[in-house]
């Protein structure tokens, strides 16, 4: 049962629903995990958000109308859950936008599961300083190589707006990396 349509058909039958859902989790868990991880950065937070995402998917699978692909629908839920999680953190700590970026940078620096070198740390910090929308677009395009048309369905934004966001994000990341990579010791 690897085909999305087969999974969806089996999910509609109560006798095979649980097994089909296990297949769905098995198929998409890693892609969704890495998508969420790029947004919230920390492993523990990512695990929480991923669990919530799959609970939402389980509860909402009956309302899935196949107007978009299953993958797009799953990504949209994961993205919304990640943003909701960050907003909740922001409300709890009463932080401003800049503080939210600082929260992400702190998360990054304290994450024991970060294996990158100094240059990759600079790149991740540069991405963490971007506004929310630009950060999402940059990650989806740069790391996951998702097409604008697909991204447009996930983020419910026009292709033109996404291209503009990506362009601004690239400029900002470039400036940040240039100004910080000179500090890396040879």
């Amino acid at each position: 049962m690897t085909n999305d349509q087969q999974i969806l058909d089996s999910l509609k039958d109560p006798s095979t629903k649980e097994l089909a859902f296990r297949h769905l989790v098995s198929k998409y868990k890693e892609r969704l995990y890495w998508h969420i991880r790029k947004i919230v950065l920390n492993h523990d937070d990512t695990d929480d958000v991923l669990q919530n995402t799959f609970i939402k998917i389980w509860n909402g699978i009956d309302s899935f109308r196949a107007e978009s692909s299953l993958f797009t629908w799953l990504y949209r839920i994961a993205t919304n859950e990640s943003i909701t999680f960050l907003n909740q953190r922001k409300r709890r700590t009463m932080t401003s936008l800049n503080d939210e970026n600082q929260y992400l940078i702190d998360n990054l620096e304290s994450d024991p599961y970060f294996d990158g070198d100094k240059w990759q740390m600079i790149l991740q910090k540069a991405i963490a300083t971007l506004p929310e929308k630009q950060r999402l677009v940059f990650n989806l395009k740069y790391f996951e190589e998702i097409k604008y048309e697909e991204m447009s369905k996930i983020l419910e934004t026009s292709v033109g707006a996404l291209k503009a966001s990506y362009h601004h994000a690239v400029k900002k990341v470039e400036e940040y990396v240039k100004s910080h990579e000179t500090r890396i010791e040879p």
């Binding site: 995990y33 890495w34 991880r37 950065l41 492993h43 994450d111 599961y113 970060f114 294996d115 990158g116 070198d117 240059w119 990759q120 740390m121 790149l123 991740q124 740069y142 790391f143 362009h167 690239v170 990341v173 470039e174 990396v177 240039k178």
Partner: peptide, 18 residues
């Protein structure tokens, strides 16, 4: 657009899981 220098490096996932 001219490709920025940082994009000349291949994107690499710096994170890992337990």
């Amino acid at each position: 657009h001219k490709e920025p220098d940082f994009m000349k490096r291949p994107p690499k996932n710096p994170f890992r899981t337990p």
